[in-house]
């Protein structure tokens, strides 16, 4: 195995292949980053929706409940297939990146909604009472009082989820998105040694993921020390 890797390496690490892998790495990163950013936005809306009261908002609350509770129990691969075929069925011809992005957003918003909900619940009920007694609306209470306290509880696990999802996007290769894993398969199919190709792909994932893991650990330690500010 090793001599084959050494023999193929000069042919493998060519300018073209490196550009190809670099582009695929970028796709992996962008898919995760955009997916989690949008997931954060929708997750926030769903977390707030689940916290509403009154029968008027029941449909919204029920929908948010259904989405968060179900998609956290469906494998990402299956979600990818559902979204992929749903797009095909309705005849919308989006590029495969956007299709994969929709799947990432669905999953990410479900998980991040729960992270945000836990964060909002970590702020004591009496802060809401005080805000309401001062005539703050829900939006004002969130903006001035609740979120400034909750975001330190929310950010570390949300960031961990983002780092976790860098690796999960490897599954998007299965609907044909040319991200890092798919690029590995392409190069392997061109006849390069699987050990060389997938070894390189593993290292590239590691280079992307590891610094962010470290940053996440730092973030958590930093926020754990200062609860209020």
């Amino acid at each position: 195995m090793l001599d084959r890797i050494l023999e193929e390496a000069p042919r493998f690490f060519t300018y073209y292949n490196l550009i190809f892998l670099g582009g695929a790495l970028l796709t992996t990163f962008l898919l995760t980053a955009f997916g989690c950013l949008l997931g954060f936005l929708f997750g926030f809306l769903m977390a707030v929706a689940r916290g509403t009261t009154g029968w008027l908002l029941f449909p919204i609350r029920a929908l948010a409940f259904l989405i968060t509770e179900s998609f956290r129990r469906i494998p990402f691969l299956v979600t990818l297939f559902i979204v992929f075929y749903a797009f095909r069925g309705t005849g919308i011809s989006w590029s495969i990146f956007w299709v994969a992005l929709v799947a990432v957003v669905v999953i990410a918003s479900s998980f991040i909604a729960e992270i945000i909900r836990a964060g909002l619940e970590s702020v004591h009920r009496n802060q809401w009472d005080a805000a309401a007694a001062m005539n703050m609306s829900t939006v004002q209470a969130l903006r001035y009082v609740i979120l400034p306290q909750a975001w330190k509880v929310i950010l570390p696990p949300a960031f961990s989820f983002f780092v976790l999802f860098i690796k999960d996007t490897a599954l998007a290769s299965q609907i044909g998105l040319v991200e890092l894993t798919f690029a590995g398969k392409v190069l392997n199919n061109r006849g390069f040694s699987a050990a060389l190709v997938f070894g390189t792909v593993l290292i590239l994932y590691f280079i992307l993921s590891y610094p962010m893991t470290r940053f996440g650990v730092w973030l958590e330690a930093r926020f754990a020390t200062s609860r209020h500010r």
């Binding site: 690796k167 490897a170 894993t181 699987a194 050990a195 997938f198 070894g199 593993l202 994932y205 993921s209």
Partner: peptide, 20 residues
């Protein structure tokens, strides 16, 4: 193992180990 995808880890086992 926590900083690389499980899918690629299995790819490695399934496709690369035969080379050894």
């Amino acid at each position: 193992f926590t900083n690389t995808p499980q899918l690629v880890q299995i790819y490695f086992l399934f496709f690369a180990l035969p080379e050894a």
